[in-house]
Simulated scan of single mutants.
Amino acid sequence: MGKRGIQLILATIVMAVAINVVSWGPPNFDKLEKWQTLMAGCLAIIAACIAYWGSSSQARLNERLHREELARRKLALFLKMDFACRLLADRAREIDAQTTFSPIDERQHFSHDDFEIEEPPEIDESWSHLDLFPRPIIAEIRTVRNDIRRLRYFLISIRDAAYYWDPAQDEAPFPFDRVNELASNLWQAAEAIAETLRPMITELAPEMDESTRFQLVYGLPPDGDY
């Protein structure tokens, strides 16, 4: 029940009492005796409505503050995740390109350092707050997290061996092919996360329009220059 509903109930009760009082004619307090129960009930209803409105107002305030705090948390996490995923996608896309096309002149030596990807701390933070993310990208966050670790463990497992990719080989040999598979999945998942979060970030924190931004940066033009 909202504020308007409570006001309507109170007005109805007051009007009913007023009509009955007026219908009695000149004041005769003896008649009040038989109305004591009704009047006590009306006062109880009024008191209950006032108490309800007070408690519900506090509940609505707490709910609004909770929504605002949740929106701030989501915005902060989404911004950090968007930035981290775009950097991650660029790095994984670079590795994908390096392991897709065969070398032109000289054979390519497999360097572990060239293909390592550090897990951004934002991934672990997001993993701890999956409830704040839309359901469609939770699987993508899982893919990013798992593939970074798979790549790291794979590179560790072959660290002591030497591998090369000769120009005569059109298709990527082992372990280039495995790195390519992981890097390809990784950048696609990271890109999907960033693109999904972008409109949500814009909704939570709309970007400044170009006109307002231009005025803030350069100021308003002098009078007569419009």
Rank of each mutant, 00 (worst) to 15 (best):
Gly2Thr: 05
Gly2Lys: 10
Leu10Phe: 03
Leu10Gly: 00
Ala11Leu: 10
Met15His: 13
Ala18Phe: 08
Ile19Val: 13
Val21Gly: 05
Ser23Cys: 07
Ser23Ile: 07
Trp24Val: 06
Pro26Gly: 03
Asn28Gln: 11
Phe29Ala: 04
Asp30Glu: 14
Lys31Pro: 01
Lys31Gly: 00
Leu32Arg: 05
Lys34Ser: 06
Lys34Pro: 01
Trp35Thr: 01
Leu38His: 02
Cys42Glu: 11
Leu43Val: 01
Leu43Arg: 07
Ile46Arg: 08
Ile46His: 11
Ile50Val: 11
Ala51Cys: 09
Trp53Ala: 02
Ser55Val: 13
Ser56Arg: 14
Arg60Cys: 00
Asn62Gln: 13
His66Glu: 15
Glu68Arg: 15
Arg73Val: 03
Arg73Thr: 03
Leu77Asp: 03
Phe78Pro: 06
Lys80His: 09
Met81Lys: 03
Met81Gln: 10
Asp82Gly: 10
Phe83Ile: 07
Cys85Ala: 08
Asp90Asn: 03
Glu94Cys: 07
Glu94Val: 04
Ile95Asp: 04
Thr99Tyr: 11
Ile104Ser: 02
Asp105Ser: 10
Asp105Leu: 15
Asp105Pro: 02
Arg107Thr: 01
Gln108Ala: 01
His109Arg: 14
Phe110Ser: 03
Ser111Asp: 09
Ile117Trp: 06
Pro120Glu: 12
Ile123Gly: 02
Ile123Thr: 03
Asp124Leu: 15
Glu125Gln: 12
Ser126Phe: 13
Ser128Glu: 10
Leu130Cys: 04
Pro134Leu: 15
Arg135Ala: 05
Arg135Asn: 05
Ile138Trp: 09
Ala139Lys: 15
Ala139Ser: 13
Glu140Gln: 08
Ile141Gly: 02
Asp147Leu: 12
Arg149Pro: 02
Arg150Glu: 09
Leu151Gln: 05
Tyr153Ala: 00
Ile156Tyr: 15
Ser157Leu: 03
Asp160Lys: 15
Ala161Trp: 10
Asp166Pro: 12
Ala168Cys: 10
Gln169Gly: 00
Glu171His: 08
Phe176Ala: 01
Phe176Asp: 02
Glu181Ser: 07
Leu182Pro: 00
Asn185Thr: 01
Leu186Trp: 11
Trp187Ala: 02
Glu191Tyr: 06
Glu195Tyr: 12
Leu197Tyr: 01
Arg198Thr: 05
Met200Glu: 06
Met200His: 04
Glu203Ser: 00
Leu204Val: 01
Ala205His: 07
Ala205Arg: 09
Pro206Gln: 05
Glu207Phe: 10
Met208Trp: 00
Asp209Ser: 05
Ser211Lys: 14
Ser211Asp: 08
Ser211Arg: 11
Thr212Arg: 12
Leu220His: 14
Pro221Asp: 08
Pro221Val: 06
Pro222Met: 09
Pro222His: 09
